[in-house]
């Protein structure tokens, strides 16, 4: 079964590894329903089912994005990034205020490797759920 309420929490946690602040939650809900309305009902139901079933949403979203499946999931991530960026608590996630050139390079290399791993995992999830 799916719930229409837990996507905000799960997406936020996937992105920032912390609980969603109340303001962001309410703002996400206000817009989320409008985005749902752009999609056929069965796609929306599938989206909420996947949110309920999948532990690694990041992997699923990446693979789905590459295969052009479940665009609703990608849009919800995008929406969450916009809503999260404006919060002072997330300032450090988006803005680098201290020059860390060497660390920057390392992080980018690591992040590419991470993406490759997540893509593989996401493809398996998609196969498993027969998306």
């Amino acid at each position: 079964m799916y719930s229409f309420n837990n996507d905000a929490e799960k997406i936020y946690f996937t992105l920032f590894n912390k609980s969603i602040p109340e303001e962001v939650y309410h703002r996400f809900q206000a817009v989320s329903k409008k985005i749902d309305n752009n999609y056929p009902h069965d796609k929306v139901v599938q989206y909420y089912e996947l949110i309920g079933k999948t532990d690694d949403l990041e992997a699923l979203e990446l693979a789905a994005r590459y295969l052009r499946k479940q665009p609703l999931l990608t849009e919800k991530f995008k929406l969450m990034v916009y809503l999260a960026e404006i919060m002072p608590d997330n300032y450090d996630v988006f803005i680098n205020e201290n020059p860390k050139r060497f660390i920057g390079y390392i992080k980018i290399i690591f992040t590419i490797m991470r993406t490759v791993f997540k893509l593989g995992k996401g493809l398996i999830i998609i196969l498993f759920y027969k998306l």
Partner: peptide
């Protein structure tokens, strides 16, 4: 907004946030 670039980067969600912080400058 930095979020504008999130949707342009091709990596996974959290990796895109890393690119925003370290590559975008």
């Amino acid at each position: 907004a930095r979020a504008l670039f999130y949707e342009m980067f091709p990596l996974s969600a959290r990796s895109n946030l890393t690119l925003i912080k370290y590559l975008l400058p």
